[in-house]
């Protein structure tokens, strides 16, 4: 670098500075939220805002001692976990068949399901599930969120199945394996990373999804995102505790996404982008 022309070195330094500024802009709001979760209520509402403060875990204590935060978390796990299992159980074999036979229409149908506004299905679901008194049950919430996870799982798995050498599958077929045996014993062990990506992103998407649970969850099945939203309206909002809750709710998606970051954009773009 010492021999590089001055102009090139200046330009590289300018680029570096711009990246740092961009990183600060992206990170600052998140840092602010996390910090607010560790502030006393006086420090959260102080103006001018305080950059330096004595951190406290009082807000986290409130969440776990005075609020059913763990129960909401359990609801989120049940709904996101259940929806991910259904999404994978239905989506992975479908992706395999679509990939092998080059069928376009099931994949397009899944894409259409993903593009429509959620309330389009939510209105008839609400009418239907209300009439059988199922609104508020776990199974309704799991089925609703599987509508999010199934197309996601299918579109994430497609490129992984496409990349399998056809000869491997054909060899298993000639050996007389049943369809399920070909999938289970031959194909799936070769697409392990794809399964991990599909499972993780399904979970993250269902965990994050707000609209369905806003309408379909009941008193005892409220997931975290809806509980946090309800928390705002209740009298005087305890901003510190709310930011502590927001931090905890945001943590699993950020951590999980870290492990699949190379596949994340491709997964979100549902086959429209190859990374």
């Amino acid at each position: 670098m010492a021999n590089a022309p001055l102009r090139a070195r200046v330009l590289a330094a300018l680029d570096g500075a711009q990246v740092v500024v961009a990183a600060i802009v992206l990170l600052a709001p998140i840092v602010w939220m996390v910090a607010a979760g560790f502030k006393t209520s006086a420090a959260v509402t102080a103006y001018p805002p305080r950059l330096l403060f004595h951190p406290t875990i009082a807000n986290y204590a409130i969440l776990f001692a005075r609020m059913p935060f763990l129960h909401y978390a359990l609801n989120s796990f049940v709904i996101a976990g259940g929806a991910s299992v259904i999404g994978l159980l239905l989506g992975v074999p479908a992706a395999f068949a679509v990939s092998w036979n080059r069928m376009a229409w099931p994949a397009v149908a899944m894409l259409a399901a993903r593009m429509a506004p959620g309330a389009l299905f939510l209105l008839p679901w609400f009418v239907m599930f209300s009439s059988i008194h199922a609104v508020g049950s776990y199974w309704v919430l799991i089925l609703a969120h599987a509508v999010i996870t199934l197309p996601l799982a299918l579109w994430i798995m497609l490129p992984f199945f496409d990349a399998l050498p056809r000869s491997v599958i054909e060899a298993a077929m000639i050996d007389g394996c049943s369809d399920l045996a070909v999938l289970w014993r031959v194909a799936l062990p070769l697409v392990g990373p794809g399964l991990a990506v599909a499972a993780i992103l399904s979970f993250v998407f269902a965990w994050n999804y707000f609209l369905f649970a806003l309408v379909l969850s009941g008193f005892s099945t409220t997931p975290l995102v809806v509980a946090a939203f309800n928390f705002v309206g209740e009298g005087v909002t305890n901003w510190g505790a709310l930011m502590a809750a927001a931090t905890l709710i945001g943590l699993p998606p950020v951590v999980l996404a870290f492990f699949v970051q190379r596949h994340l954009v491709g997964g979100l773009a549902a086959g429209a982008v190859k990374e």
């Binding site: 939220m33 994050n208 901003w239 709310l242 927001a246 945001g250 999980l256």
Partner: peptide, 21 residues
């Protein structure tokens, strides 16, 4: 991972975060 953090956060968390800011 810094770049992906904003869009993997739950929208509810993003909304609450900006509500305070």
């Amino acid at each position: 991972s810094l770049l992906i953090s904003p869009f993997v956060l739950p929208p509810v968390v993003v909304g609450l975060m900006w509500l305070v800011i």
